[in-house]
Amino acid sequence: MDMPLGLILLIGKFAFLAALYAFLTWAFRGLFRQMGLEASAGVAPVPPQPAPRPVPAPVAHPVASAGAPPATARSGAADGSPLVSAISHEHARPRLVVQEPGQSRLLAGQVIELTAALTIGRADDNGLVIDDRFCSSHHALIFTHGGERILRDRDSTNGTYHNGRRITGDVVLRDGDRINIGTVALDYRAPGIE
């Protein structure tokens, strides 16, 4: 073997490093493309929710996609404790109004003031206890995020319905929205917040 092995190794070393960096260039270009679009995603209108998917898996609906104004996603990013601002509007505290008590001991017309996070379920540790056979012990949750009230199902057995549709992910509540849990129907009221 009479080839200049040392030279081959030296060239090989730099070729190897060059190949590594070529790969990195490709990879970073991909990453920046993704990141760049992310940055604009908060400002530009979020693409409409894709039409019913071929996969019947329960897919979460993004908070920002439920017709929220474009600034929604950004306002969440604005500071670490997004909940404070919502609570400061004392005069306009949103609430739930029982429309149909169903089998529960709730009373029609009863008003439940919403806290920063209101848990709903059959168990006693919930903020709103609904003693209904079709209500799970930890059934659902309404919480504040970026000035919005968000309804989330907590893997309940019989599901949470929002304006007649069973929810699979987070839903932003609007004044007058109807929520159905078991046999109970609740209305969401938030005058002055829009």
Binding site: L24, F28, E38, H61, G169
Partner: peptide
């Protein structure tokens, strides 16, 4: 591989980490 190689190696880890966080960032659920 020297500094050139270790930078490349660390950048690979930066890529994996950033990409993973990016998935977390864009996740719907």
């Amino acid at each position: 591989l020297g500094l050139a190689g270790t930078f490349a190696l660390l950048l690979l880890y930066v890529l994996v980490t950033a990409r993973s966080y990016s998935i977390a960032w864009r996740a719907r659920h």
